[in-house]
Protein backbone atom coordinates (compact mmCIF):
# COMPACT_ATOMS: atom_id res chain seq x y z
CA UNK A 1 0.00 0.00 0.00
CA UNK A 2 1.03 3.62 -0.46
CA UNK A 3 1.85 5.42 2.76
CA UNK A 4 0.26 8.69 1.66
CA UNK A 5 -3.14 6.97 1.75
CA UNK A 6 -2.62 6.15 5.42
CA UNK A 7 -1.56 9.60 6.65
CA UNK A 8 -4.50 11.64 7.90
CA UNK A 9 -6.81 8.61 8.12
CA UNK A 10 -9.10 8.66 11.20
CA UNK A 11 -8.18 6.17 13.94
CA UNK A 12 -10.95 4.40 15.86
CA UNK A 13 -10.91 2.10 18.84
CA UNK A 14 -12.48 -1.36 18.81
CA UNK A 15 -15.92 0.13 19.60
CA UNK A 16 -15.74 2.69 16.82
CA UNK A 17 -14.90 5.63 19.09
CA UNK A 18 -12.87 8.37 17.45
CA UNK A 19 -9.28 8.65 18.74
CA UNK A 20 -7.63 10.98 16.25
CA UNK A 21 -5.86 10.75 12.94
CA UNK A 22 -2.70 9.08 11.68
CA UNK A 23 -0.08 11.83 11.91
CA UNK A 24 2.93 9.73 11.03
CA UNK A 25 4.19 6.20 10.52
CA UNK A 26 7.20 5.07 12.54
CA UNK A 27 9.72 2.63 11.07
CA UNK A 28 12.53 0.78 12.79
CA UNK A 29 15.56 -0.46 10.86
CA UNK A 30 15.75 -3.93 12.37
CA UNK A 31 14.47 -6.12 9.53
CA UNK A 32 16.45 -8.43 7.29
CA UNK A 33 19.86 -6.88 6.53
CA UNK A 34 20.19 -5.91 2.86
CA UNK A 35 23.27 -4.88 0.91
CA UNK A 36 23.25 -1.31 2.29
CA UNK A 37 20.68 -0.93 5.10
CA UNK A 38 18.35 -3.23 7.00
CA UNK A 39 14.73 -3.49 6.01
CA UNK A 40 12.57 -0.78 7.57
CA UNK A 41 9.79 -2.48 9.51
CA UNK A 42 6.65 -0.58 10.50
CA UNK A 43 6.85 -0.09 14.28
CA UNK A 44 3.55 1.72 14.63
CA UNK A 45 1.45 4.77 13.93
CA UNK A 46 1.67 8.18 15.60
CA UNK A 47 -1.91 9.21 16.38
CA UNK A 48 -2.74 12.87 16.84
CA UNK A 49 -6.08 13.57 18.56
CA UNK A 50 -6.39 17.21 17.49
CA UNK A 51 -4.72 17.55 14.10
CA UNK A 52 -4.78 15.66 10.80
CA UNK A 53 -1.03 15.76 10.28
CA UNK A 54 2.19 16.53 12.06
CA UNK A 55 4.39 19.52 11.24
CA UNK A 56 8.09 19.72 12.16
CA UNK A 57 7.64 17.13 14.93
CA UNK A 58 8.02 19.47 17.93
CA UNK A 59 5.75 17.19 19.96
CA UNK A 60 8.27 14.35 19.55
CA UNK A 61 11.54 16.15 20.35
CA UNK A 62 12.77 18.27 23.25
CA UNK A 63 13.60 21.27 21.07
CA UNK A 64 12.04 24.45 22.54
CA UNK A 65 13.15 27.11 20.11
CA UNK A 66 11.98 29.33 18.54
CA UNK A 67 9.77 29.61 21.61
CA UNK A 68 6.46 30.80 20.05
CA UNK A 69 6.63 28.28 17.21
CA UNK A 70 7.65 25.38 19.46
CA UNK A 71 4.84 26.09 21.92
CA UNK A 72 2.23 26.66 19.25
CA UNK A 73 3.07 23.45 17.42
CA UNK A 74 3.40 21.45 20.63
CA UNK A 75 -0.05 22.65 21.67
CA UNK A 76 -1.47 21.88 18.22
CA UNK A 77 -0.21 18.31 18.37
CA UNK A 78 -0.86 17.82 22.11
CA UNK A 79 -1.80 14.36 23.26
CA UNK A 80 -0.06 12.57 20.36
CA UNK A 81 0.82 8.97 21.08
CA UNK A 82 2.28 5.94 19.37
CA UNK A 83 0.28 2.78 18.69
CA UNK A 84 2.35 -0.30 17.87
CA UNK A 85 1.66 -2.48 14.84
CA UNK A 86 0.56 -5.34 17.12
CA UNK A 87 -2.37 -3.19 18.31
CA UNK A 88 -3.74 -2.46 14.84
CA UNK A 89 -6.76 -4.63 13.94
CA UNK A 90 -7.57 -3.29 10.48
CA UNK A 91 -6.38 -0.64 8.07
CA UNK A 92 -9.32 0.47 5.97
CA UNK A 93 -9.78 3.12 3.32
CA UNK A 94 -11.68 5.40 5.69
CA UNK A 95 -10.38 4.43 9.12
CA UNK A 96 -7.76 2.50 11.04
CA UNK A 97 -9.26 0.28 13.75
CA UNK A 98 -7.29 -0.69 16.84
CA UNK A 99 -7.57 -3.85 18.92
CA UNK A 100 -9.39 -3.80 22.28
CA UNK A 101 -7.06 -2.80 25.13
CA UNK A 102 -4.40 -1.21 22.93
CA UNK A 103 -1.51 0.58 24.63
CA UNK A 104 -0.71 4.27 24.15
CA UNK A 105 3.06 4.60 23.96
CA UNK A 106 4.94 7.86 24.14
CA UNK A 107 5.64 9.18 20.64
CA UNK A 108 8.76 10.96 21.84
CA UNK A 109 11.96 10.49 19.84
CA UNK A 110 14.07 10.57 23.00
CA UNK A 111 17.47 10.01 21.39
CA UNK A 112 16.85 12.68 18.79
CA UNK A 113 15.63 15.03 21.53
CA UNK A 114 18.68 14.50 23.73
CA UNK A 115 21.03 14.98 20.78
CA UNK A 116 19.40 18.24 19.80
CA UNK A 117 19.31 19.51 23.38
CA UNK A 118 23.03 18.71 23.70
CA UNK A 119 23.82 20.45 20.41
CA UNK A 120 22.40 23.68 21.75
CA UNK A 121 24.60 23.72 24.86
Amino acid sequence: MILGDLLGTPVRDADGGRLGRVADVRFVLDGTPRQLMSEARVLGLVVSPHSAASFLGYERINLAQPWPLANLLRWRHRGSYLVLWEDIAMVGKDAVRLRPGFTRYSASLEDGGRQRAGDGK
Binding site: D24, R26, G31, E59, I61, Y81, Y105, S108
Partner: peptide, 19 residues
Amino acid sequence: MTSPDLVPLPPVAGRILDA
Protein backbone atom coordinates in the same frame (compact mmCIF):
# COMPACT_ATOMS: atom_id res chain seq x y z
CA MET B 1 6.47 17.10 25.95
CA THR B 2 4.33 14.00 26.39
CA SER B 3 1.54 13.23 28.82
CA PRO B 4 2.65 11.32 31.92
CA ASP B 5 0.00 8.63 31.35
CA LEU B 6 1.72 7.38 28.21
CA VAL B 7 3.81 4.23 28.41
CA PRO B 8 7.48 4.74 27.45
CA LEU B 9 8.40 2.90 24.27
CA PRO B 10 10.37 -0.29 25.01
CA PRO B 11 13.89 -0.19 23.54
CA VAL B 12 14.14 -1.34 19.93
CA ALA B 13 17.21 -2.77 18.24
CA GLY B 14 17.42 -0.56 15.19
CA ARG B 15 17.40 3.08 14.26
CA ILE B 16 13.99 4.75 14.33
CA LEU B 17 12.72 6.71 11.34
CA ASP B 18 9.46 8.64 11.21
CA ALA B 19 8.06 8.86 7.70
